[in-house]
Simulated assay, not measured.
Amino acid sequence: MCVNYRPPTPEQFGTLGAFSDLPADWRWPEETWKDYAAPILRAGPGGRPQACLASYGMVPRRQIPPEIKPFDTMNARAESLGERRSFAPAWRRLQLCAVPMAWFYEPCYETGRAVRHAIGMADESLFFVAGLWRDWPDAHGTIQSSFTQITINADEHPLMRRMHKPEDEKRSLVILPRDQVDDWLACTDIELARSYLAHYPAARMRDRPAPAASRKAAQASPNLELF
Rank of each mutant, 00 (worst) to 15 (best):
S221F: 00
W28N: 01
M1V: 14
I152E: 08
L126E: 05
G131H: 01
N153R: 12
I175D: 12
P137Y: 09
A220G: 00
P66N: 14
V99S: 06
F13S: 15
E30G: 05
A198I: 08
I68W: 11
V3F: 08
G44C: 07
K170I: 12
P29K: 03
D189R: 09
D123N: 13
C97I: 01
L16F: 05
D72I: 14
A217H: 07
W91V: 15
A54R: 01
P10R: 00
A90N: 13
L126G: 04
R194A: 05
C97P: 02
A220M: 02
E169T: 11
M205Q: 12
R215P: 06
R62W: 13
A203S: 07
S195T: 11
A186G: 07
K216T: 07
G57N: 07
A54E: 03
A139H: 10
A210I: 02
R42H: 09
S125E: 06
P137R: 09
D135L: 06
V99F: 03
V181P: 13
D123K: 15
R48W: 04
Q50I: 02
G112H: 09
L185F: 11
E67Y: 13
M101W: 04
E83I: 07
G14C: 15
N153I: 03
Y196L: 05
L224V: 00
P107Y: 14
D182N: 08
P23A: 03
H199K: 04
Q50K: 14
A98H: 07
G47A: 06
R208S: 15
P211C: 06
A18K: 02
T73H: 05
D135A: 14
L81F: 05
H164I: 12
E30V: 10
D138G: 01
G82I: 07
R194V: 04
A198N: 03
P70Y: 10
N223H: 01
G112C: 12
A78Q: 10
M163Y: 05
T15Y: 03
W103P: 12
R215G: 03
L132M: 13
C52M: 11
R77Q: 13
S125A: 15
P211Q: 05
M121Y: 02
Q180S: 03
C187L: 11
F128W: 03
K165G: 02
K69N: 12
W136N: 02
N4G: 12
P23C: 01
A114N: 07
W103H: 13
E110N: 11
P10C: 00
F19L: 09
G14I: 04
P89H: 04
R215F: 13
I119M: 06
A88R: 15
F147N: 01
V174E: 08
P66Y: 10
A139D: 11
R48T: 08
P158D: 08
I40N: 01
V181C: 15
K165T: 15
S195V: 04
A193Y: 10
H164G: 15
G131N: 03
